Amino acid sequence: MQERAGATRQSLLETAARLFHERGFAGTSISDIGNASGLTSGAIYFHFTNKDALARAIVEAHFATWPELIERQIPAGAPALAGLVRLSFAVARAYRDDPVVRGGARLWGERYAIDATLPTPFVDWIAAAHALLDRARAEGDLADRVDPAAAARSIIHAFFGMHTVSDALSGRADIENDLTDLWRLLLPALLADPLRTEDTLTRALACTTDGPGVARKICADAE
């Protein structure tokens, strides 16, 4: 029974997230969500007290996806800068393809219409980028002129600004090409040896860790 309730709740989150992304918070009603999910309003209220609580749960689920993604994309021992590039592509694909991530992002953008306290975005991404740049310095890959803290903030600013523009122009259909172009601008400034830009980008793009142990081994071997 508990397992079924959990599956129903997850399916409800995904359906609501898709509608919130398409129509916005104000443009989506509990009735709309019920019609799309096949649930009665009473069944929805069993899981969430109101639409604001449902929106908050989607934003929280959006944030909850990132720690596992970071762990999966940056295996222990993998070069940090290539890992940062690889992680950025995984995040970009999630913003393009994952309904909860897409819905959570739009809801946070409409946070002033939601009567709930939502998590603060970006700070964890800045911290993660900072940690990876510190690792890159210890590995000898980061240029001496680069301040990891300042660079981390600038990378996250550029990354999420690119998302906003890509979403407006193509619905993020071109996000991976846009991100490749962004890294071709950033990596020469970050690397101790700017001539390794294409090599770093190629390794990151060729290495996937979306699967279990076999994919991790391929990733480690490629590095």
Rank of each mutant, 00 (worst) to 15 (best):
Y112R: 14
P75C: 06
D52E: 15
I58Y: 03
R72T: 15
R93Y: 11
A64K: 14
P99C: 10
A61L: 03
S41K: 14
E68P: 02
R72E: 09
A113V: 12
G83D: 10
F48P: 00
H62M: 07
A64P: 04
P67F: 05
D98K: 05
G104H: 03
A113P: 03
K51Y: 10
A92S: 10
A116Y: 01
L39Y: 09
A82C: 11
S41P: 10
E60T: 10
A55W: 00
A105S: 12
V100A: 03
G104W: 00
L84Y: 06
V91S: 04
H47M: 06
L87T: 03
V100N: 01
Y95C: 02
E71P: 00
R56V: 07
Y95W: 13
R96D: 08
A57L: 06
I44K: 03
L84N: 04
R86N: 09
V59L: 08
Y95L: 02
G42S: 15
I126V: 12
T120L: 11
R106Y: 05
S88K: 10
L39C: 05
V59C: 02
A57I: 07
R56P: 03
I74L: 13
R96W: 05
R93K: 11
T40L: 11
T49G: 08
Q73R: 09
I114P: 06
I70R: 08
T40N: 04
